[in-house]
Design a protein around this nucleic acid. Sequence first.
DNA 1: GGATAAAGTAATCAGATTTGTTACATTCAT
DNA 2: ATGAATGTAACAAATCTGATTACTTTATCC
Lengths: 138, 138
Amino acid sequence: MQNCRFAFAVHVMAVLALERADCCPSSRLAQTVNTNPVVIRRLLIELQEAGLISTLRGPHGGALLKRKPEKVTLREIHQAVDQGDTFATHPNEPSSECPVGRKITKVMQRIQDRANRALARELEKMTLADVLRELRRG
Amino acid sequence: MQNCRFAFAVHVMAVLALERADCCPSSRLAQTVNTNPVVIRRLLIELQEAGLISTLRGPHGGALLKRKPEKVTLREIHQAVDQGDTFATHPNEPSSECPVGRKITKVMQRIQDRANRALARELEKMTLADVLRELRRG
DNA sequence: GGATAAAGTAATCAGATTTGTTACATTCAT
DNA sequence: ATGAATGTAACAAATCTGATTACTTTATCC
């Protein structure tokens, strides 16, 4: 399996959404996610660059949602922290002496693009507000 | 990025489709993919279990498509060799003392399911014959 | 029936990636 | 000034993954 940054990010965003206007320090976020504060801070930087949160230094600092949960799609969260492809391509250049090897990379790239777009379309349908709703229900 | 088994599998299946009725040994497949024959053989086992190919031992042995390329979807190839999820979940159990931590795993699982299904739907639309067509065109 | 060529398989290696950790610099409210 | 927080670099540890070696099993052909 792959990295868990998306899961961490959704978790963090959900906690921030519940906190509303209160700043939430990385130490607290780290506790509920059950990881190290530095891991969280690295994540916060990416969420910040994507314009989803802002952070404050100093006492009473921490992270803060910049938008209402209804206005944040899971696609944005995903792209913020996990900009890679859904699956990997050939690690070594395929043989150029084979008609398939010569062109497969380009064809695979097109398949990748379609897969990425399909995934993005689905994540676009879900917002942070939906996640909160599901958390309430169980 | 993740594993490249899907890319390898599509490559292998495309070569087998071009070979038609001829058996193709793992050594030849390994050459065009540019990897080790054992890597290919491990892949062939999975494709075989999925009912997409059959293999023969002994001299003039190798792998052989079981169906026409029009009847093989990329979804089948993907599921055969890459049955995992599109993204990973929390490596460590989230805190049960936080209302989010207590339920996030289940919610993430639902998100995963939707993402997996969306990906599968897209891959279902493409067949091995489509791949061959694109390989011919460039 | 022996030689040969292939798949099947187990064990291991090497490299890359990723998460977690420590330490420290920087910022800012009080 | 102090203290609490982020930002950040460096590194440790674990995991994953592709590649490799070596061997067994199976089947074909002479």
